[in-house]
């Protein structure tokens, strides 16, 4: 397991770009895909499936713009390989609204003006939904800390917090 780059181009051709079959359910739609091992879930969504709602803000897990829900849990899609998620269920920002309209968190983002440029917004929304499912945020400080994995350079944080508070309140009322 030496830590050296490949020496020859043959190394590259022989194994690298071998494709593997995986199936994924993304926003309720099943996809049968041939993916290369090095493709991240984020690049799969954005570059291969043209699902560009999920954003790339750093590609290194340092900003949260790429947050999606994997099996209902929020993760950074930039730091995980598509090939490792055969059979998984993924929800992205494109999958939140339904025939009845926007997801309440999406609507609340609009009402509270919880974004400006909108680039971190899909990640913030997925993160909010993930946070609500986790059920760990009890106080304002908890909310702030548990939303800190999503950087908003426009500085809409205080409005985002209002959305989360409202969503938690609604969630509490719905689940006795």
């Amino acid at each position: 397991m030496r830590n050296q780059p490949h020496e020859t181009i043959e190394d590259v051709r022989s194994d690298a770009i071998e494709k593997h079959h995986i199936s994924l359910t993304i926003n309720g739609t099943s996809y049968n895909l041939e993916v290369e091992p090095w493709t991240s879930v984020l690049d799969l969504l954005r570059e291969h499936l043209n699902l560009t709602g999920t954003k790339k803000g750093c590609d290194h897990g340092q900003c949260g713009a790429c947050t999606i829900l994997l099996e209902g849990k929020r993760i950074n899609s930039c730091l995980t390989l598509a090939i490792m998620h055969d059979g998984a269920e993924i929800t992205t920002i494109e999958g939140l609204a339904n025939n009845d309209g926007l997801h309440p968190v999406q609507q609340a983002f609009i009402e509270h003006d919880a974004f400006q440029c909108g680039y971190c917004t899909p990640g913030q929304i997925c993160s909010t939904i993930g946070l609500i499912h986790e059920g760990k945020a009890k106080t304002l400080d908890d909310i702030r800390d548990l939303m800190s994995g999503n950087i908003c350079r426009c500085g809409a944080y205080n409005n985002i917090v209002k959305v989360v508070q409202e969503a938690l309140e609604n969630h509490k009322n719905q689940t006795p």
């Binding site: 397991m1 050296q4 490949h6 290194h60 897990g61 730091l79 995980t80 390989l81 490792m84």
Partner: peptide, 29 residues
């Protein structure tokens, strides 16, 4: 496999692979 690594969460490994600080030839999931 030569130059192989385990991958689980991958949150640091992939981070470092992207900037070529680590460059395994094989990943074992």
């Amino acid at each position: 496999h030569e130059d192989a690594r385990f991958i689980a969460g991958g949150t640091n490994l992939l981070d470092l692979m992207k900037i070529d600080v680590i460059h395994p030839q094989h990943l074992v999931d």
